[in-house]
Amino acid sequence: MSPRLQAWLLAIPATLLVAVFLGLPVLSTFATTIGTDGSPLSNYSAYFESRFRMTVLWRTMEVALITTLVSVAVGFPTAWIVAKSPGRLKSILIIAAVFPLLTGVVVRSFAWLVILGRNGILNEFLQKVGLTAEPLSMLYTQGSVIIAMIYLFVPLMILTLVGVLEGIPEDLTDAAASLGATPASTFRQVVLPMAVPGLIVGAVLVFTGSFTSYATPQLLGGERQMMMGTFLYQRAMVTFDWVGASTIAVIMVVVTLATVIAMSRLARRMNPVAG
């Protein structure tokens, strides 16, 4: 048996699983959206003309974008401290970041339900210290969804960046410092350019993850803060509008792919090593 044939025989079962149970069903979802009356893209023009549906799309974009930006802003300095910590402390910090990451999204969203609820811990605290007389309604707002999303994705950002920041040789930052660079300019001219690939990977993971999330917007946003994920579920399983649900699904795939492609191009252009 030729090595080529052997290689294919070994790879075929996994290839088939992906092709038959992911490729075909997703293609069928694409096919479902092709309009039967008039223009083949009529379902999409209907989507883009509907005020309500566009609100959901823009809201999802906005939430995903804010989540990404805040996750970078919180994750980057934290990852820097983790990367520069001595051995034992570093292990503990990595454990503290991995633990929430491996804890399910339902559990982590539930925690914010307990904190932000009408009779929740935050309201209880605010009333006790006299900052508010009546409990505030914080749930089912865009803010509550965003906070829970940031909570969901900061660990991922930290872990992605720790690996990258660790890879920056200390000689480089020391050399910059000994040549008279201030810590700020060392950061701007040495650390930041080398961290860009990691930042981009992290940002793509967070953006696509929050753009396509379901459980968090369902629990903390509800009907009022419908996002693409919850909208897709509602169309598919509550109103049984499969064409509408498929259209939402395709838009989600297109946005995900466009983000990945655009950001990997950007990464290639900004990579200091590849020039």
Binding site: A14, L22, T29, A249
Partner: peptide, 30 residues
């Protein structure tokens, strides 16, 4: 060398397709 280069990407394709889209498509088609 014996396998086409894109094949490695096939196995990580499930990462590129949003989970919720995969769930919906599996429900609908399978």
């Amino acid at each position: 060398i014996e396998l086409p280069r894109f094949l490695g990407n096939v196995f990580v394709l499930p990462i590129l397709v949003p989970e919720i889209v995969l769930g919906f498509s599996l429900m609908k088609s399978v």
